[in-house]
Design a protein around this nucleic acid. Structure first.
Length: 553
RNA sequence: GUCCACGUAGCUCAGCUGGAUAGAGCAUACGCCUUCUAAGCGUACGGUCGAGGGUUCGAGUCCCCCCGUGGACGCCA
């Protein structure tokens, strides 16, 4: 909420108190921005919401409130009742323009807010197995998760970016055997990769790296010893590649938690013992089961198989307990769509261990389908395998990739149009926004720069007011996008901000020697727009270029 | 079969947790560069919000029931 909205809310609250002698609950008073300018700058539906409490016609309630509000709201030019009982506010243009100095003073910090109240929140995302390169689903999850964390940090949450490494199970054994087979093959030996081994080019490349370090040392040793070595090496090097790809993609994690480490620290056994002790389990067919149906799951789940090994679930429960132990009170996971059915059992486990149902929230990342010229692109032309995050970025660029992934809600299937993402034309929303930024910088370069002024009384045209109002909304948008974990809202905001700017640019010549005062005020408005646009782009990890070369077509 | 998402303009999607006459972009048509970057601006065209019922001052949004699409339903990870 910005200052104007805060002031309106508190004025409405006291008006309600005085008129009806009731204290409105938090959240009852809602301030909206009407889509239509003819309905004012801000609006509230409080009169309708009070009908049930006060037992009065909304028109009568609104009339009483407006009488009080006329005296209270000093920043309003006009307050009117409209439609079924909306109260609409027209804010003084000078008040709207105050935001320019707020933005200039705050700089990079504009948009920062404390709606998170320091809540300790741990966001786990990507968490791809270290057995191969990251793919499109991971790219979507990485962009989304990283933007969520940027939003949370900007909104006063204490947020940790975590990557959970599944490095203790069967798939790592397969990786070890795959690298071993490639290693032997490179010495001309007969060796076949396991059926469910890893056939990608990354395994061949990693094998070459290892060979450079150790030569033929593992050609003649026992298979057991060799596979153990290659398992470790393979995992380490695959992980390093993943980390490098993510870093290149502007996603950096604060914390990498290894499943193997959780096992080694005995956390899995401890959780298992505790669950048995708490009576959450039973034995059947030689296995130990978790009574997850008692906590909303549709089936009970095996924790320890009859062969004595744990299932995937058990170390993951330990992983989640470890998150709580480190003092995080809110856990957020971003999982691929194929993990959908896994949510109820993990939530069940958390509740069984004494935590709240909503202490863990899981957002599902739906499938990505690459499309080019209306045709689905399934495989990389170069490798014949699934397309990796690197190939995607090399093709369309980091900015385009990140923006596209984040601009659509994650819970819907995404058709990613390669041609569109690659195009440097007006069809591409990334360039539309970046071009606005470059245009602003270009104008500012031609002047002595924008200065903070004491008055913006000349900024009264429709285009200027639209821009001011939108800049005013930035902080509330950031808080809302953080709360609802919807970075796509930032993209909507960016598009609209760019649109308001371009429209303003088209309507007015900004540098006008004959009107120095107006020019100075407009330059300050441009500077505020520039800062807001840059901060918004930064929230989704997209760069703000000061120049864009014009391409000939 | 059971469970979970989703269904909005020709296409891709918004719709601020129930608000006013449902919005953008692209595509299509027509205007605008002797003026700060035309990667831009403006105008027009485009809708039974999948179908039906319910809840209330008010439903694209909440509930029920169909239809359609996708996903999940292992002592795999």
């Amino acid at each position: 909420m910005n200052n104007i909205e805060l002031e309106l809310t508190s004025n409405i609250e006291s008006a309600v108190k005085e008129c009806f002698d009731i204290t409105p609950e938090p959240g009852l008073i809602m301030i909206e921005i009407p889509k239509d300018n003819s309905k004012g700058d801000y609006s509230t539906n409080i009169a309708m919401r009070l009908t049930k409490i006060v037992r009065q016609n909304p028109q009568i309630i609104a009339k009483a409130l407006v009488e009080k509000l006329q005296q209270k709201v000093k920043d309003a030019d006009k307050i009117e009742i409209a439609g079924p009982g909306f109260i609409n506010f027209w804010i003084k243009k000078t008040t709207l323009a105050n935001v320019i100095n707020t933005v200039i003073d705050a700089g990079d910090d504009y948009g920062k807010n404390d709606s998170g109240h320091g809540l300790r929140i741990l966001v786990e995302y990507v968490s791809a197995n270290p057995t191969g390169a990251l793919h499109l689903g991971h790219a979507r999850g990485a962009a989304w998760g990283d933007s969520i964390c940027r939003l949370l940090n900007k909104s006063g949450y204490d947020c940790l970016r975590e990557y959970y490494i599944n490095d203790a199970g069967h798939q790592i054994d397969m990786l070890g055997e795959s690298v071993y087979a490639r290693y032997l093959q490179s010495f001309g030996k007969e060796a076949t990769l396991p059926e469910d081994g890893y056939h990608g080019p990354d395994v061949v490349e990693i094998t070459e790296e290892i060979k450079q370090d150790v030569g033929d040392k593992y050609v003649n040793c026992s298979k057991e010893e060799a596979v153990k070595f290659f398992r470790h090496q393979g995992k380490r090097r695959e992980l390093k590649r993943i980390e490098e790809d993510l870093k290149y993609y502007r996603c950096e994690f604060d914390s990498w938690v290894s499943e193997q480490k959780i096992v080694d620290e005995n956390r899995v056994n401890i959780v298992m013992d505790k669950m048995v002790e708490m009576g959450l389990t039973y034995e059947e067919d030689g296995a130990i089961w978790f009574k997850s149906t008692e906590y909303g799951d549709d089936k009970n789940r095996v924790l320890k198989k009859s062969d004595g090994f744990y299932t995937y679930l058990t170390p993951d429960i330990a992983n989640h307990m470890y998150k709580f132990e480190r003092g995080y009170t809110k856990l957020v996971n971003l999982w691929g769509a194929d993990h959908h059915g896994y949510i109820p059992r993990m939530k069940a486990a958390i509740q069984a261990m004494g935590y709240g149902k909503d202490d863990l929230e899981v957002d599902i990342i739906q499938m990505v389908r690459l499309v080019e010229n209306g045709q689905e692109v399934k495989m990389s032309k170069r490798t014949g395998n699934a397309i990796t995050i690197r190939e995607l970025i090399d093709d369309i660029g980091i900015d385009s990739a990140r923006y596209f992934f984040v601009s659509r809600a994650v819970d819907t299937h995404l058709d990613f149009d390669l041609g569109l993402a690659r195009s440097q034309t007006n069809e591409n929303p990334v360039y539309y926004a970046q071009y606005a930024y470059a245009r602003i910088c270009s104008i500012l370069r031609q002047t002595n720069g924008a200065k903070r002024l004491d008055s913006y009384d000349l900024l009264v045209s429709e285009k200027e007011v639209d821009l001011l109002k939108h800049i005013n909304e930035f902080t509330s948008m950031v808080a809302d996008a953080a709360l609802t974990r919807s970075p796509n809202k930032v993209c909507n905001y960016i598009q609209k901000l760019a649109q308001y700017f371009h429209s303003f640019y088209g309507a007015h010549k900004i540098i006008d020697e004959t009107q120095p005062e107006l020019t100075a005020q407009r330059l300050a408005l441009l500077e505020a727009t520039r800062i807001t646009l840059k901060n918004a782009l930064d929230l989704v990890g997209v760069s703000a270029p000061e120049k864009m070369e014009r391409t000939e077509d």
